[in-house]
Amino acid sequence: MDINQVTVTGRIMQNVTTRPDKDGVISKLGTIGIYKGKDKQTGSPLYANIPFVAYNKATEFIKPNTKMMLVGRLNSYTKTDGSPYGKLVVQLQVNSAYPIATSQDVTISDDGLPF
Rank of each mutant, 00 (worst) to 15 (best):
I62A: 08
T66A: 10
Y47Q: 01
I108D: 02
T80P: 05
N4G: 04
V6S: 07
D39Q: 01
D21V: 06
G112R: 02
P114A: 04
I62H: 09
K22N: 13
F115D: 06
K28E: 03
D2W: 12
Y35F: 15
D105Q: 09
N56F: 12
I62W: 09
S76T: 00
S109A: 12
D110E: 14
N65H: 08
P114Y: 05
N4E: 03
Y47C: 00
T17M: 13
V89N: 06
L29V: 14
F61H: 09
S109I: 13
V53D: 04
Q41F: 05
S76H: 02
P45G: 08
G82R: 01
P99N: 06
Q41E: 12
N56Y: 13
S27R: 12
I12D: 01
A48V: 00
A54C: 01
T31H: 03
T17E: 15
P114F: 02
P51C: 03
K28S: 07
I12P: 04
L29W: 13
A54D: 02
M69D: 00
P99F: 00
V94L: 06
T78H: 02
S103M: 12
Y35M: 11
P51K: 06
D110R: 12
T7E: 11
V71Y: 05
L29N: 15
F52W: 08
D39W: 01
G112D: 15
D2S: 15
G33E: 05
V89D: 11
K40N: 14
P64G: 01
I32V: 14
S83R: 07
T31C: 06
P114Q: 04
T107A: 06
I32A: 07
P84V: 05
Q41T: 12
I3R: 13
P99A: 01
G86E: 09
M68L: 09
R19L: 08
P64F: 03
P64L: 01
K57N: 10
K67V: 15
D110K: 13
G24N: 00
F52Q: 03
T42P: 07
S109T: 15
Y77K: 03
S96A: 14
V8N: 00
Q91R: 11
G112S: 10
V25H: 13
S27A: 14
N95H: 09
S96G: 10
L92E: 06
K38Q: 10
P99D: 02
S109N: 14
I108W: 02
L74Q: 04
V8M: 04
K79A: 10
D21G: 04
T107W: 04
M1T: 11
D111E: 11
P45L: 02
S76Y: 04
T59V: 05
T42G: 08
N4D: 01
S76R: 04
V90E: 00
Y35S: 10
